[in-house]
Simulated assay, not measured.
Amino acid sequence: MSQSRPGVNIVPIHGKTPQIDETAFIAPGVTIVGDVTIGAGSSIWYNCVLRADVSRIVIGERTNVQDGSVLHCDPPRPGDPDGSPLIIGNDVLIGHMAMVHGCVIHDRGFVGLGAIAMNKAVIGSDAMLAAGAMLTEGKVMGARELWGGRPARKMRDLDDAAVMGMRMGTAHYAENAKHHAEAIAAAL
C-alpha cells in the first residue's frame, strides 16, 4: 500500500492512515483522510474529497470516483452502534460531483453526475442512480434497476445494453487512469 502521491493530500487522523493500493490512480488535488481503503486498479479523479474521520470508507477494485466528488460516512450513535460506513464494491462508477455518504454500493453499481446517495441507502449490482438524483436515507435499489428524481424512485429495470454500457465505462476509466498517471509522471 503506497502512501506517497505527488499533489495528493493524505491525512492520518485518530490513528488511522489511508491505505491505497499501489496500482490505484489518485489524481493531484485529491484529499484522503483517515480510515480509507482503496483497492487495486481503482481511480480517484481530480479534486475529490474522501473523509473517513468518524467511520470508514472502503473502495473495491477497478472502481472510479470522478472529479469533484465528495465521499463521507457517519459515526456510531445511540441506537445505531454501527454508524454509517461507506462501502463501495468493485467496478463501480461514481460520476462527477456526486455526493456519496454512508451508503453501500454493490459491485458494478453506478452513481450519475451530481447524484446524492445518503446514509444506509443501498445501490444494487448493475443498478444506476441517474444524474442529479437523490437516494434518500435507507432506500434500497435492487440489482439492474434505474432510479431517478429527488427523491429518487424506481423508473425501470435496466436491459443488457445499459448494463454493458456501464461496464464499458468502467473499462474506459481504468485505461484512462493509466494515461493520466503517465502524463503526471512525465510532468514531474
Rank of each mutant, 00 (worst) to 15 (best):
N64P: 06
K139I: 09
H14C: 10
H172M: 13
K16R: 09
F25P: 05
G29V: 00
N47V: 03
A24P: 06
E22C: 11
L93F: 03
T170H: 05
Q3R: 07
T17W: 01
V36A: 14
G95Q: 01
G142C: 04
T63Q: 04
N119C: 12
M99E: 04
H179V: 09
H180L: 08
W45C: 09
L93D: 13
S69G: 02
G68T: 06
M118T: 04
A183T: 03
S4F: 08
D82G: 13
D67S: 03
D159N: 11
L135A: 07
K139N: 05
G148V: 08
G60I: 10
A27V: 01
S69F: 14
G34W: 12
R51P: 03
Y173A: 03
D35H: 03
K178H: 08
I184W: 05
F25A: 01
G29Q: 10
A117R: 08
A181C: 04
G7H: 00
T63A: 07
P6T: 02
S55F: 11
Y173F: 13
V65E: 05
F110T: 04
E145H: 02
E61F: 09
A127L: 06
S125Q: 13
A161F: 12
A24Y: 15
D160Y: 13
D126C: 11
G169Y: 09
G142E: 07
H179Y: 11
K178V: 09
I10Q: 04
K139A: 14
I87V: 15
R51W: 11
G34A: 06
G79W: 01
H179N: 10
I10F: 10
G102E: 15
D159A: 15
R153D: 15
D67Q: 06
V70M: 09
A183G: 10
M141L: 13
D157M: 15
A171R: 13
I123F: 07
G138R: 09
A183K: 14
N90R: 11
G114T: 02
A143C: 03
M1K: 10
E175A: 12
K154G: 10
A186Q: 13
R77W: 03
G29Y: 08
D35Y: 15
V49M: 11
G165M: 13
G114M: 02
T37Y: 15
P76K: 01
G34N: 14
A130S: 12
T23E: 08
R77A: 07
I184R: 05
I20L: 07
G83V: 02
S55W: 00
C73L: 04
V140Y: 07
P12M: 02
E61P: 06
N119Y: 10
M99C: 02
P76A: 02
M97R: 05
V100I: 15
A127N: 08
Y173D: 07
G109M: 06
N47W: 15
W45D: 11
D80A: 02
T17S: 15
H172E: 04
S55T: 07
R156S: 11
R108L: 11
A161W: 10
S2M: 15
K154W: 00
D53H: 14
Q66C: 02
A185W: 01
K139P: 08
N9C: 08
A187C: 01
G79M: 00
D67T: 09
D107I: 09
I87K: 14
H106Y: 05
M1H: 09
A127R: 07
V92P: 14
D21K: 13
T23A: 12
A98W: 14
T63M: 04
I116Y: 05
A162P: 10
A185S: 01
E137G: 05
H172I: 08
I116M: 14
G89P: 04
N9A: 12
A162L: 03
